[in-house]
Design a binder for these strands. Structure first.
Length: 548
RNA sequence: UGGGGUGUCGUCUAAGGGUAGGACAGCGGACUCUGGAUCCGCCGGUCGUGGUUCGAAUCCACGCACCCCAGCCA
């Protein structure tokens, strides 16, 4: 079983390899360094790197950096870091901008062959003519004039945006992408990677096929919106193969797959930026976000992200996946590796009337169904905290927790029986209760057996914790519902609670992921948590069996 | 409008002329010192209309719906 789920692309790859079309599979993950990676990118990453791994090929990380105005070194580094965090090691880390000279030579070749021309038309006029399917008045300049103009463009003799180099294909082609697409534009702006060496920059449609061809990419995988661009991709390669140092064959081929879309969140760069810059979240790594850095900070493991991508498959159907599936995969990933501990997120104090002193119980880290061993000392004493939600004065039918006249089991400890409720201003302030003697590891000898089990901590021993409870970012499946995605933001996407956790965690490695029994999976926030002031993120809640 | 795509349970995804299957969600049950996990069961689908065929999700025709393109972004 490979990393990549079987799909139309693995079929193509297998066919091409079997027929000897390529000696070795070469793919690439080609992000533009103008933003941070999010979970949607994970599909492309898994596809490209996974394919290389599955079929003994190579996969490069290549920055598609042909637009100096939007790209930054900082983004490139963050992207590389995220790719590695997911567990992939690029064969090489490459930059499209390193090929600018070759691309320039390719452009000259096209000009010499009468397949490209310099156009002086202002942007709006070009767009208007293109819409009408009419040729530019500059379309039939001589090769000599085109050559001279293009060289002068490179030398910086013309201002930004004043001229472009266009492919001479067909001004009236039904596919608008083929109506003499722009190959080069003038931009007087420094480039984060190659500095100020260039004032002309190639367009995606010209650069991308050349990048792939130069690197020997065999399968150029991209998302559906580039489908129309494939015609230019092929045009560029067919017209330049065997020239400018490019091989005759084999040549790369482009295949498109559907983007990964998730419900209850946003994956568009524009909206993500709005959330960050508008202060709706604390930054690009705010655990409410679907960015890889945010998921990492939240506590999601890369294994879970990859498994999620595998489970959703790769197809050409534009599909939005329900976030429940993602959460389920995260739980599945954590369940076998997260030791169980007790913590209380919303504390309600309980004073025992028939217990004094303290004792240290040995509590197993793992439930029966997980074949792991290990226990930790768990202090028990007269004053405890239980979860406020685990007590009810007027319990509904089916209530299995603490209530007047209803016993509960304290996890790993005694059976508890309510004696008195101290209220203040209509709010329950304190519970007085007694322990049923002889119920440590045994059922009560008389009276009813407890119906349920609740978690607790010893008040005197517990460590205070700031709990950050994360929920879905948006209230609606589709954040755009109603027209303004900001209006659908979930005000409870982050709920902060002051609670307690059992003292054993102080002994654990800081990056331990726990299951707080009956609450969910948690770990210490890698940014804000300190030993003397614990901050714990809820990675994902447990599946809630109880429906009120 | 032209061009390019996509339509299978609520949501993803298989089935490539031969019993429409799986996962997630939902519902019900078993088990349980986590209302977790696990196990069992149920619910539920081929965009429409014709055609070809012994047999169609699959092939053909005509529709319909949705997405993408008409940046000197990628």
């Amino acid at each position: 079983m490979g990393l990549v789920p079987e799909c139309f692309i693995t079929e193509i790859v297998e066919r091409d390899l079997k027929e000897g079309r390529y000696a070795k599979l070469i793919t690439r993950f080609p992000p533009e360094p103008n933003g941070y990676l999010h979970i949607g990118h994970a599909r492309s990453i898994l596809l490209n790197f996974g394919l290389a791994q599955d079929y003994g090929g190579e996969c490069n990380l290549r920055f598609d950096d042909t637009n100096p105005e939007t790209e930054k070194e900082e983004y490139a580094r963050a992207i590389e870091e995220d790719v590695r965090w997911l567990g992939f090691r690029p064969t090489r880390v490459l930059y499209a901008s390193d090929y600018f000279e070759t691309m320039y030579q390719c452009a000259l070749t096209l000009i010499r062959e009468g397949k490209a021309y310099v156009d002086d038309l202002p942007e709006e006029e070009m767009s208007a003519l293109r819409a009408q399917g009419k040729p530019s008045p500059y379309r039939n300049r001589s090769v000599e004039e085109n050559l001279e103009l293009f060289e002068r463009m490179r030398r910086g003799e013309f201002p930004t945006g004043s001229r472009v180099l266009r492919a001479k294909i067909d001004p009236a082609h039904p596919n608008f992408k083929l109506r003499d697409p722009v190959l080069y534009r003038i931009v007087h702006a420094p480039h984060y990677h190659v500095g100020d060496r260039w004032v002309i920059y190639p367009m995606y449609d010209f650069a991308h096929p050349l990048e792939d061809f130069i690197e020997g990419v065999t399968h150029s995988l991209c998302t559906l919106e580039f489908e129309n661009n494939r015609a230019i991709y092929d045009w560029v390669i067919e017209n330049l193969k065997g020239k400018c140092g490019l091989p005759l064959s084999p040549r790369p081929h482009q295949y498109e797959f559907a983007r990964l879309d998730l419900s209850h969140t946003v994956l568009s760069k524009r909206k993500l930026i709005k959330l960050v810059e508008g202060g709706y979240v604390s930054g690009w790594d705010d655990p409410r976000l679907p960015t890889l850095r945010a998921l990492r900070r939240r506590g999601v493991r890369p294994e879970a992200i990859l498994e999620f991508v595998r489970k959703t498959g790769i197809s050409r159907n534009e599909a939005q996946i329900e976030i429940d599936l993602f959460e389920e995969v995260v739980r599945d990933d954590l369940n076998p590796i997260a030791p169980r501990v007790l913590g209380v997120v919303d504390p309600l104090k309980v004073v025992l009337t028939n217990y004094e002193g303290e004792e240290w119980l040995q509590a197993p880290y793992w439930p029966r169904d997980i074949p792991k061993e290990g226990t930790r000392p768990l202090p028990f004493s007269q004053e405890l905290y239980i979860e406020r939600a685990d007590f009810s004065l007027n319990p509904p039918k089916g209530w299995k927790r603490l209530a007047p006249g209803q016993r509960v089991r304290l996890r790993h400890a005694y059976v508890l029986e309510l004696e008195d409720v101290v209220e203040e201003g209509g709010e329950v302030k304190l519970l007085k209760a007694r322990i049923v003697p002889g119920t440590l590891g045994a059922n009560p000898e008389e009276g009813p057996k407890p119906k349920g089990v609740i978690h607790w901590v010893s008040a005197r021993h517990a460590l205070p914790v700031e709990f950050r409870l994360y929920n879905r970012l948006f209230l609606t499946k589709d954040p755009e519902e109603g027209g303004d995605f900001l209006k659908n933001l979930n005000p409870e996407a982050l709920v902060v609670k002051r609670g307690f956790i059992e003292p054993s965690v102080a002994q654990d490695p800081k990056d331990t992921r726990y299951q707080l029994e009956r609450l969910g999976y948690f770990w210490q926030d890698p940014v804000d948590s300190r030993p003397e002031a614990l901050v714990m993120n809820r990675i994902v809640p447990l599946k809630e069996g109880y429906k009120a």
